[in-house]
Design a protein around this nucleic acid. Structure first.
Length: 574
RNA sequence: GGGCCGAUAGCUCAGUCCGGCAGAGCGUCUGGCUUUUAACCAGACGGUCGGGGGUUCGAAUCCCCCUCGGCCCGCCA
């Protein structure tokens, strides 16, 4: 006969206790914050790799991350990709074969409408710009059963999974994406589901020590209604032999509201539904053979302790090595898709080189950090120092620890450590962004000593890539580096003294073509000779060339430009 | 209310697991330079290591209490 469950707790089982995180923690339970701290390591990923190696896992070692494809992927999701990546690389360096997989939890149900969406070109749009009604009618269904609001992918889930995949691709991290829906539909999850349902009394008992509202009727499976497509929690029977469950499609509480069920009574296979998250997570570990998984601090106190226990006591396997990472903030506030405080990977890449983004995630995962767009220059400076620490080792201003960390982490950050790239300081690159003239940029960079005379064309191109980023940053934040060479003659209103001085200066440039230092001197000299206050004369120069009251050091700036143009502009001819 | 993580120079952060001189970069100030304005060089200034107590010859580091920020302890993921 079909296995029928009863709500009776077997004698001798632990009494149900209030679900406090620390309450059940026994010697078997691990502290995901405390991973990999047995030996001092300069780079955290090596400490984690030590712990994984200590388990003596079989190759390939499998590292997992995962996320629900519910909305616009943003920089925060990179933790899931990059933290695992550095551990993978540390293990590869030690000769292991490592696979990095990324589960997309696309069988989760859509519970509320996202406020923002993004098309495949990363254009972020509001809900009003798509067919919100169509989405609203699909609340309660798995993401993979909801049409793509942009009409370009197979489903809502597929759309945002595609964006996640593209995010990983742009930072050049090789990741295999695994669809949860696919795991169910293909039958790969069948055994895991069967183990949960066969041991559902144990499952219930274990879960109840972590969650309060697990009652005797609880069955750890959601069936998808064959009539309306919603996932329902009301399971009325389980048949292990035929691998099916009986269900009633009932109402589901979701956030503030209730998603109504259609009342249909039916039968679903193990492939037509899903496990609740607390069981699904360990099921993924088991099915995919996961050895290591980093996760956000939100999972540290709830999901992890239950997942770890469920792995051992329900499934009977040893859970992966865990690691908690702290969240970071964006411009001082929590990242939030719904509140609109987000920055997409695409946007970040307009401002930063890929290497710098990757570097950002080499920092200690246990510290909360702010990604401050206004101070990106500081992050890039830090990266340049990190690079210097790799190439120069322990040296003046760079300590042994810092050098060791760079020695380990830098090769995992960049493509190629063979040649040291030319790096123009970020704020100076922003200044170079004042002109689109490549030759002028090169001339200015050379004269400032940031571009060696013997640099090859490829090296120069690589170095100048930063100019576009820094320019975009200066424009986006409209900061003090947001200069722009005035293409046409600005409107001016100079007095006679200034006009005479400008003419004198034009004559000097025309006759002597002074270098930057000489020109700087000449500017002062010319102002003095004409009894023009120095500040006023500089202001005239900035007005003429930038149409701004202030600007960069004028001598080097003008010296770098074409003399004929400088003369014409000083004479206000063009 | 209970638990977990964090707090170190004005700013950004190393150092905390394993107790042993309080560190770096940036910023500021001074000079290099008859020179307001990117960069560069030299030097100086800068500290109640969030606060209090304890252990110790010795505490940023270990223990206890407290403050602040974040997270978890409903559902969901």
């Amino acid at each position: 006969m079909p296995s029928c469950w009863t709500g009776r707790i077997p004698p001798g089982s632990p009494t149900r206790s209030r679900a406090t995180p620390g309450g059940r923690r026994s010697s078997r339970m691990s502290d995901p914050y405390d991973v990999g701290t047995d030996e001092r390591r300069a780079f955290w990923a090596d400490a984690v790799a030590d712990e994984i190696e200590a388990r003596d896992p079989e190759d390939p070692i499998v590292i997992k991350g995962g996320v629900s494809p519910s909305g616009v992927p943003h920089l925060g999701h990179f933790n899931e990709i990059m933290r695992g990546y550095f551990v993978a690389e540390a293990l590869r360096e030690r000769g292991h074969e490592v696979e990095q997989v990324f589960t997309t939890d696309d069988r989760d149900r859509l519970r509320k409408l996202p406020r923002k969406l993004a098309d495949l070109e990363w254009n972020v749009v509001g809900l009003g710009e798509v067919d919100a009604g169509a989405l609203g009618r699909n609340l309660g269904k798995p993401y993979t059963d909801i049409p793509d609001p942009f009409g370009c992918c197979d489903s809502y889930g597929a759309h945002f999974t595609e964006l996640l995949g593209r995010s990983a691709a742009v930072v050049d991290v090789p990741i295999e994406t695994v669809s949860n829906t696919e795991l169910y539909e293909s039958g790969r999850f069948d055994d895991a589901v069967e183990r949960v349902l066969a041991g559902r009394e144990t499952a219930r008992e274990v879960l109840s020590t972590f969650q309060n509202k697990v009652d005797d009727g609880y069955v750890p499976f959601f069936a998808q209604c064959s009539e309306c497509g919603h996932l329902t929690e009301t399971i009325t029977g389980v048949d292990l032999d035929s691998r099916t469950v009986e269900y009633v499609c009932s109402d589901v509480e979701a956030g503030d509201g209730v998603i109504e069920g259609c009342g249909h009574e039916g039968t679903a296979t193990f492939r037509e539904g899903k496990l609740p998250w607390r069981f699904e997570w360990p099921a993924q570990w088991l099915t995919l053979g996961i050895d290591f998984e980093p996760f956000g601090k939100d999972h540290a106190e709830g999901s992890w302790p239950s997942g770890e226990t469920i792995a051992r006591d329900v499934f009977g396997f040893e859970p992966p090595v865990p690691m908690v990472y702290e969240w970071f903030t964006l411009n001082g506030d929590a990242l939030s898709s719904s509140a609109g405080n987000l920055i997409t990977v695409e946007e970040v890449l307009e401002l930063l080189e890929v290497d710098v983004i990757r570097y950002f995630f080499t920092k200690n995962p246990k510290k909360q950090r702010d990604f401050d767009v206004g101070r990106i220059d500081r992050l890039v400076d830090e990266f340049d120092r990190f690079e210097r620490a790799y190439f120069e080792g322990e040296t003046e201003g760079i300590g042994a620890d810092e050098a060791e960390r760079a020695e380990r982490a830098y090769p995992m950050v960049v493509d190629d450590t063979g040649t040291r790239p030319i790096r123009i300081p970020y704020t100076f690159a922003a200044v170079l962004g004042m002109t689109d003239d490549r030759d002028l940029r090169i001339a200015m960079a050379r004269r400032s000593g940031h571009l060696p005379e013997d640099a090859g064309e490829d090296e120069i191109d690589a170095a100048l890539e930063r100019v576009e980023k820094a320019r975009a940053w200066a424009v986006r934040t409209d900061n003090e580096f947001n200069y722009r060479l005035a293409e046409t003659l600005p409107e001016t209103d100079f007095d006679d003294g200034v006009e005479t001085a400008l003419e004198d200066l034009a004559a000097v440039v025309e006759a002597e073509s002074p270098d930057e230092k000489a020109l700087q001197e000449k500017i002062y000299e010319t102002a003095r000779n004409n009894d023009v206050p120095v500040g006023e004369f500089f202001a005239a120069g900035y007005r003429l060339f930038l149409d701004e009251p202030e600007g960069p050091r004028l001598g080097p700036f003008l010296a770098a430009m074409d003399d004929a143009f400088v003369v014409r502009r000083l004479r206000r001819e063009a």
